[in-house]
Design a protein around this nucleic acid. Structure first.
Length: 439
RNA sequence: GCCGUCGUAGCUCAGUCGGUAGAGCGUGGGACUGUUAAUCCCAAGGUCAUCGGUUCGAUCCCGAUCGACGGCGCCA
């Protein structure tokens, strides 16, 4: 036994056949009809499986008439099993085709709603079918590689993967709108960040991360917001803001490198030049918020110290960049209460937003955390946040508090940037946005 | 929360200066033994988003509602 789990019977995957064509034996492939054309006594099907596509020609006389007729009848997306000999043929897309000696229609398909002309609305209503498309398939494969790259890097750097709760009673930042739900006789929220739970976990494990869904009830209508997204959050004891950024740039680089290693073809299909991604190596750029304001003023933005950076500002300073940029030391008032004040510049906090290049915007928000209980209480009060639900969090500062830092990475935001997607909703198979929870 | 655009056949759209509609694709039938989003012939398919107003008459003009999409703010 090789330890793999085998499927029902020995059929080949299309890309394996294209990589090492077997021209002298019958092969069997299983998949779905991607394109079909018929011309009297010959049917051309382009067959799709999880790995690729190949043309199949079904000629009357080469197989039982019943099977030829089912080939004629099979619509796009019918599932089929085809056996036959593989031939090199320049007339076939991809250069090879299978000439069928057997054609089994496994599952018929009703007329497929997605045709050559498609509106965004139709596609989103049929998202459960649209995800079969080559482009969407490519995105999901890249995403899997990015996540694998992240886990590989984190695990080999001795971070523990932990499992924080999704039901919570604390609103992490104070400003964010949460999904409220009835929790038996109590009230709870869907988590919008696991950060505080990760902070609690560093006291036993020191280096932790979690990959969980996070939920935001903000009515954001933009190309970079989902109401449900996958959040990669990390927290590390004995880590300052500087080391925190080094972890981030190494992690992001490892994710991108894994996608390049495993999914170059898919990235090309999506219009992403892999050469761009090969430049994503540490160190990333670092600028302070104050420097950013100066730079924006030179670009004739009307912005003063103290104002938060908007989408247009972020775009203006990153659209010509090749690597991501950290923006550090935001004014205290722009950021969450738990971020540590910078002793060298107390108007600011030791935070860093990581902005993707090419104007794709923020992909990570991180900071060194405030360890001083009095300062935390002061900041909570200044932000009008009631402290009741935070008692356990404040406790962490009473029992062996240590310097620590962490961050949250928006997985779909990274996918959007790496895959060069116009909209973040294509970075997740079933996007949840303000206007959409179906399908 | 704010601003904007759109809603006509299964799909993508055109159209009617107000007199109840048309194309392409798809579907069904037919032809074709090498197609590349195949081609050719025939056919079926529409309360013109909903409700109300103006009018002899509204799919078209006006208003409201609903739905979708785009942009801003907020954040990952």
């Amino acid at each position: 036994m090789d330890g793999r789990v085998h499927t029902m019977c020995p059929a080949s995957h299309i890309n394996d056949l294209l990589k090492e064509p077997v021209l002298d034996l019958d092969v069997e492939v299983r998949g779905w009809v991607h394109r079909t054309r018929s011309s009297g006594k010959i049917v051309f099907d382009v067959l799709r499986d999880a790995t690729g596509i190949i043309q199949v020609t079904i000629k009357k006389g080469n197989l039982p008439d019943m099977e030829f007729e089912s080939a004629q009848m099979s619509h796009i997306e019918s599932s089929v099993i085809v056996r036959g000999r593989m031939f090199k043929d320049d007339r076939a897309p991809g250069g090879y085709e299978i000439r069928a000696s057997s054609f089994t229609l496994v599952g018929t398909s009703a007329p497929y709603p997605i045709t050559e002309y498609q509106s965004e609305e139709l596609l989103l209503d049929n998202r459960h079918l649209w995800i079969r498309s080559r482009e969407q398939t490519a995105i999901m494969k890249v995403k899997a590689s990015l996540m694998k790259g992240a886990r590989d890097w984190l695990n080999s750097n001795e971070f523990y993967e932990v499992t924080p709760p999704i039901f919570t009673q604390n609103a992490c930042e104070g400003g964010v709108t949460l999904f409220k739900l009835k929790y038996f006789d109590d009230q709870a929220f869907l988590s919008q960040s696991a950060q505080m739970y990760l902070e609690a976990l560093i006291f036993s494990l020191e280096k932790v991360y979690a990959i969980t869904p996070s939920f935001r009830a903000e009515k954001s209508r933009t190309t970079r917001h989902l109401t449900e997204f996958w959040h990669l959050e990390l927290e590390e004891a004995w880590t300052d803001s500087k080391l925190n950024m080094e972890i981030q740039e190494n992690l992001v680089s490892a994710m991108v490198a894994k996608a390049v290693e495993e999914r170059s073809e898919e990235l090309k299909l999506l219009g992403r030049d892999v050469a761009d991604l090969k430049e994503i190596v540490p160190p990333f750029k670092r600028v302070t918020y104050a420097q950013m304001i100066d730079r924006l003023k030179q670009k004739e933005f009307e912005i003063e110290w103290g104002a938060d950076l908007g989408a247009a500002e972020e775009r203006a300073v990153t659209e010509d960049e090749k690597v991501p940029t950290f923006v550090t030391n935001f004014p205290r008032e722009c950021k969450a209460f738990y971020m540590k004040e910078d002793p060298d510049d107390p108007k600011t906090v030791k935070c860093a937003d990581l902005l993707a290049p090419e104007g794709y915007g923020e992909i990570i928000g991180g900071s060194e955390r405030e360890t001083d209980l009095a300062k935390l209480l002061e900041r909570l009060e200044a932000n009008n946040i009631p402290t009741e639900a935070y008692q356990w969090y404040l406790d962490l500062r009473k029992f062996g508090s240590v310097p620590h830092s962490g961050f949250g990475l928006g997985v779909e935001r990274v996918v959007r940037w790496v895959c060069k997607l116009e909209h973040i909703r294509d970075a997740v198979p079933f996007p949840r946005t303000v206007a959409r929870v179906y399908p």
